[in-house]
Structure formats: structure tokens, C-alpha cells
Amino acid sequence: MTSRTRQVVLSGLALVGTMAVLAGCSAAPSDTASAKKTDFRPCMVSDAGGFDDKSFNQLGYEGMLDAAKELGADTNKAESKDATVYDSNIEQLINQNCNMIITVGFNLADATKKQAAANPDTEFAIIDDNSIDAKNVKPITFDTSQAAFLAGYAAASYSKTGVVGTFGGMQIPTVTIFMDGFADGVKYYNEKKNKDVKVVGWNVETGKGSFTGGFEAGTQAKSVAQTLLDQDADVILPVGGPIYQSAAEAIKDANNGSVLIGADSDLYEADPRYKDIAFTSVMKGMRPAVKDVVEQAADDKFSKELYVGTLKNDGVGIAPFHDYESKVDSGLQDELDTIKSGIIDGSIKVETQSNK
């Protein structure tokens, strides 16, 4: 990769209805408010969840803005209404002179691969996909099965009914990796405690489970969550951006003591509307990962090397129990700390079809 001419040398390391690109398209202020210090411009295309999903799109976008603030860079973004605009949104950003384009989610892999091949001088990063082997594409992935394993163990420990549940948006690896880890954590709890806590909504062995078919909050997501509640699940992990909102509504309507586990970000902090039912969350460190990747690219240190967030590098983890800290078993946190150490040193194996 050739060096770029910048005004200074730097160190350190998306929903529109059609093809519209938001912000930075004219002399109006860009997405970043800092004074411009560099001509390097990072940009981002969202998945269908949009940049206000309180989840992976928003976290990735915030990471880009963090980097832009440090760099004094202009940014641009494009929100995707659905899969039909992924390709055109990327192309629009290329036409806006973006030096790096971050695409958010497994579903954008085909469009990213196509545009990266057609634009070899543009650097790309894609979150939650490692299928593209190209010199100008940086994969950013997370072994969320490790953190979900901890959440599954905690859910099994907390459950009063002996039934916990999980469901997803689409049956794709970046969703089922959460569900695999969650179910395996419950299984490990049963083995260690000689219990028989049941998981509804996902079967690791058969690969069959409950999915809404998309990442939108609404009637379908609420109905799936209600089905799990009707099977006596009192801890539910929805995996798929905004669908957690519908699960939260179902739990609140039930008003039976059931709780919610967030995905990607700390639900308690990210969406305080649901803090009273937020048990914990399975978190991805997308914000710092994206920030680092952007800063590296701005400093001419772009690399196609795969990034994998794990428990060991703090790329994944679980959130505090917050208001439920006094309600969980007194020895639970010590048990989770021991399990985490075991996963890191390899004595506890966490396997998933999604990362094999």
C-alpha cells in the first residue's frame, strides 16, 4: 500500500430508504465535530438494524467516531434499509472519497467483497465476517461463544423455573455463535451442579431453533419471545440487534419475574428503559476494535490480518449484574471468574459450529 499525503502525520492506530448517504456530502459539518487535521476519511455502512440499534451497528459507528475525533478526520455513513442497498451504499461512499469503509455485519460480505475487488486502493474492514481474503479487507470478528458460555451458566444458576431461552434474528453464524455458547454454558452448569436446567429456542446438536427472520423489532420478535415465556423460560437471550426491544415488551407484559440478557452492548447502560429486567449482557468490544483499526489505517498501518475478540484480550465479556447483583447466588461471580480463567487457559473448551 502506498503512503498517503496528509496535512499532518498521525500516530496510533448505517437506515436510508434507497441509496442516500448521510452527512459529509457538502460543505455542511460532517459526523465529527473536531477541527480537521487529516485528509484520511473513514466511513461506515450499517446493516438493516441502523445506527441507533443500541447494538452492533451503533457500537461500530461510535468506534469510528472515537477514532475520527482523535485523528481530526471527517467521516461519512450510510444506513441500509435492507439488503438491496448494501452494494449501492458502499459505492456511494467510495464516490464520497472515503479512504476506509467499514461494513457492519455478516450480511454485507458479498457486497464488501465485490466493492473491495473493484476498488483496490480503498481499504475496507468488515465486522462479524472473516470470509473475504483480500489485501484491502480487514476482518473484525468476536468469539462471542466464550462470553455467552458465561451468560448461559449465570442464567441457569439464576433461573427459578429451570428453563431458560434464546432466539435469534436470522440463522447466520454471527447469531448462532451466541446461542451455541449460551446453551453450552447451561449444559456446563448442569454437569457441575447435577441439575437439569432446560434450554428452549435453540438446540446445538440439531441446529434447530427460533428465529424471527430479520433484525427488526415488532410483532414477530415479540411473538417468538412470548413462545419462550409460554414454555416457562424466565431468562431470555435475544440475539439480533433491535429484536431485544420486543422481547423486553413481552417480558414486561408477562410481569412474572422473567429477565433479559442483552447482546453486543451492556443493555442496562445502552437502553435504560429496560434496566429493571436487564440481568446481564453478552458484550462485544466492537467500539474499541473499530477505533484501533481506523487509527492504524490512518497511520498507514492497515493490515488484512484477522482480528478476533476473545475473553483473553477483553474483546468479549459479560456485563455486571447491576440491580441483580444481590439476587444471584453469592458464589456465582467466583464461579464465573474460575470458568473464565479455564476458557482462557484452554482447560474448558468452548466450541461452536460458527467459529470452526
Rank of each mutant, 00 (worst) to 15 (best):
K77E: 12
D82V: 10
T84P: 07
V85L: 05
V85T: 15
Q92Y: 10
I94G: 03
I94S: 02
I94E: 02
N97A: 15
C98K: 04
C98Y: 04
M100Y: 08
M100Q: 13
I101C: 10
I101T: 10
T103Q: 08
V104Q: 14
G105Q: 11
G105A: 11
G105L: 11
N107E: 11
N107M: 10
L108V: 15
A109M: 15
A111Q: 03
T112H: 10
K114I: 04
K114C: 03
K114P: 03
A116W: 02
A118T: 09
A118V: 05
P120I: 12
P120R: 09
D121L: 08
D121T: 15
A125E: 00
I127L: 13
D128K: 02
D128N: 06
N130M: 08
D133V: 13
K138G: 01
P139T: 02
I140G: 00
T141C: 12
F142R: 04
A151T: 12
G152R: 00
A155Q: 05
A156V: 04
S157H: 07
S159K: 06
T161Y: 09
G162L: 08
V163N: 07
V163Y: 04
G165V: 04
T166I: 01
F167K: 07
M170H: 06
M170E: 07
I172W: 01
I172E: 01
P173S: 05
P173F: 05
V175T: 14
V175W: 07
F178I: 07
F178V: 01
M179L: 09
D180Q: 09
D180K: 06
G181S: 13
G181Y: 07
